[in-house]
Simulated assay, not measured.
Amino acid sequence: MTALLLFLRSREVPGGTLCAVSAMVAVAWLGAGQTGSRHAVTAAALALALGVAVLGHGLGGPDSTPDTTAAIRWAPRRALHLAAICVLAATVVTVVTSVPAGVVLRDAAGFTGLAALAATLFGRRLAWTLPVVTGCVSAGIPAVPEPFALHLLTWVGQPPGSSAALTTAAIFTLTGVAGYVIRGPRRIS
Score class of each variant (00 low, 15 high):
residue 17 T to D: 04
residue 17 T to G: 04
residue 19 C to D: 12
residue 19 C to L: 12
residue 20 A to Q: 01
residue 21 V to L: 03
residue 22 S to H: 00
residue 22 S to G: 07
residue 23 A to E: 12
residue 24 M to L: 05
residue 25 V to F: 02
residue 25 V to Q: 08
residue 26 A to M: 05
residue 26 A to C: 11
residue 28 A to C: 08
residue 30 L to E: 13
residue 30 L to S: 11
residue 31 G to S: 12
residue 31 G to K: 01
residue 32 A to T: 04
residue 33 G to S: 05
residue 34 Q to W: 15
residue 34 Q to C: 12
residue 35 T to R: 08
residue 35 T to H: 14
residue 35 T to D: 10
residue 36 G to Y: 11
residue 36 G to Q: 09
residue 40 A to P: 11
residue 40 A to G: 10
residue 41 V to L: 08
residue 41 V to P: 08
residue 43 A to W: 06
residue 43 A to H: 03
residue 43 A to R: 07
residue 44 A to R: 00
residue 45 A to P: 01
residue 45 A to S: 07
residue 46 L to G: 03
residue 49 A to W: 00
residue 49 A to M: 03
residue 51 G to K: 04
residue 53 A to H: 09
residue 53 A to W: 08
residue 55 L to K: 05
residue 56 G to L: 04
residue 59 L to D: 06
residue 60 G to Q: 11
residue 61 G to V: 06
residue 61 G to D: 09
residue 62 P to A: 12
residue 63 D to V: 03
residue 64 S to W: 10
residue 65 T to M: 12
residue 67 D to A: 02
residue 67 D to F: 02
residue 68 T to L: 13
residue 68 T to G: 13
residue 72 I to P: 15
residue 72 I to V: 11
residue 73 R to L: 11
residue 73 R to V: 05
residue 75 A to H: 13
residue 76 P to N: 00
residue 76 P to H: 03
residue 79 A to N: 10
residue 79 A to Y: 15
residue 80 L to V: 14
residue 81 H to P: 04
residue 82 L to S: 10
residue 82 L to D: 09
residue 82 L to V: 10
residue 82 L to F: 13
residue 83 A to E: 04
residue 84 A to F: 07
residue 85 I to V: 11
residue 86 C to G: 03
residue 86 C to Q: 07
residue 87 V to K: 02
residue 88 L to G: 01
residue 90 A to G: 11
residue 92 V to M: 09
residue 93 V to I: 14
residue 93 V to C: 15
residue 94 T to G: 13
residue 95 V to T: 07
residue 96 V to Y: 13
residue 97 T to G: 15
residue 97 T to Q: 06
residue 98 S to A: 11
residue 99 V to E: 02
residue 99 V to T: 14
residue 99 V to H: 02
residue 100 P to M: 14
residue 101 A to V: 11
residue 101 A to N: 01
residue 102 G to W: 07
residue 103 V to H: 15
residue 104 V to Y: 06
residue 105 L to C: 00
residue 107 D to R: 00
residue 108 A to P: 05
residue 108 A to M: 14
residue 108 A to T: 05
residue 113 G to D: 06
residue 116 A to F: 13
residue 116 A to E: 08
residue 116 A to Y: 08
residue 118 A to M: 04
residue 118 A to G: 13
residue 119 A to V: 06
residue 120 T to Q: 15
residue 121 L to R: 06
residue 121 L to V: 07
residue 122 F to Q: 00
residue 122 F to V: 05
residue 123 G to T: 09
residue 123 G to A: 11
residue 123 G to I: 10
residue 124 R to D: 05
residue 126 L to T: 06
residue 127 A to V: 06
residue 128 W to T: 04
residue 129 T to H: 02
residue 130 L to A: 01
residue 130 L to G: 01
residue 131 P to V: 01
residue 131 P to Y: 00
residue 131 P to C: 01
residue 131 P to E: 08
residue 133 V to F: 14
residue 134 T to S: 09
residue 135 G to M: 06
residue 137 V to K: 03
residue 138 S to T: 08
residue 138 S to I: 08
residue 139 A to K: 03
residue 139 A to D: 01
residue 140 G to I: 02
residue 142 P to N: 15
residue 143 A to C: 11
